[in-house]
Design a protein around this nucleic acid. Sequence first.
DNA 1: CCGTGTTTGATATAGTGGATAACAATTATC
DNA 2: GATAATTGTTATCCACTATATCAAACACGG
Lengths: 168, 168
Amino acid sequence: MADSAKPVSRREGRKEAAVAADETQAVQLGELSDLLGYVLKRAQLKVFEDFLHCVAPLQLTPAQFSVLLLLDANPGRNQTEIANTLGILRPNFVSLLDSLESRDLCTRVRSANDRRSHILMLTEKGHAVLARAKKLVVSKHEARLNELLGPDGREALLAMLTKIAEEF
Amino acid sequence: MADSAKPVSRREGRKEAAVAADETQAVQLGELSDLLGYVLKRAQLKVFEDFLHCVAPLQLTPAQFSVLLLLDANPGRNQTEIANTLGILRPNFVSLLDSLESRDLCTRVRSANDRRSHILMLTEKGHAVLARAKKLVVSKHEARLNELLGPDGREALLAMLTKIAEEF
DNA sequence: CCGTGTTTGATATAGTGGATAACAATTATC
DNA sequence: GATAATTGTTATCCACTATATCAAACACGG
């Protein structure tokens, strides 16, 4: 999100005329601040933005990180299984994998059982990058969330979001 | 999200061979289920999907609904102010407004003070549609969230998300 | 009043994510 | 062995996001 897209809190530098009191009056959010979907999306953008910033030295997006995590936890799976688990459509998963493979973070190996499918595995470098990424995520990203919400707050939030994601 | 994109819970109809026990073993989410950003995004998609479904009779997207809400709460504002408040870039706000205006839900009026800017206002039809949309959102969408989380759970969730959106 | 700079809405354009159709290769099924 | 289904892939489309640029209108200092 560009600077000019930052919401609400942007005090436009113009019109110093409205000296003390008025200050051009901020736009009222009104019932929008009670719309869960609205706040949810706003929070999600903020969290992704921070994730990107924290993992910037490793050049990993949230989606790429989630793929590496899944490959680590599920060796020997094919593209369809990993893509489905992440809610990514197979066609769109191809270029994502291309990118990871071109950076030598994972490899596609033709399966011996079913020569149609590609078995996915992390490379050595993939394991190393994932390990460093995890450290950054825990020590910087999630740590900041813990600081803001408290450990129990974070747990409660995670539980409610999981409930929505699974049961809603 | 298409059917084929539905995460995890998709038991592929193939291979009845794995009769009772094995069942091809589900892919393990692993540490992904503790990643707040991941669950946050998943929950957000679910909530938007439900919103879209609940307001389908009025053909309003979350973004369009939020614009109508803001125009109602802030009559007499121009495009830049409304767009900034919603975190929408001015260029992208133009077509959004075009769509609403072509449906006679709002109007652009040249300001008398500053003939560069367009004052935005809801039309009569806009007010009516917004009123009906609000009813649908409250009675169907938010009601379902209340049912899932409980009134206090929903409040707590809203509070934490707002905190993230504003202070993170 | 004039000229410089800024703001507003708008256009064009590019990048990204998500979605569908179709295809060759391979496998499953009957 | 013929037909159907699956896997990875390509092409393509749509929505959303982002940047640069423009004309019109305004602000302001000289």
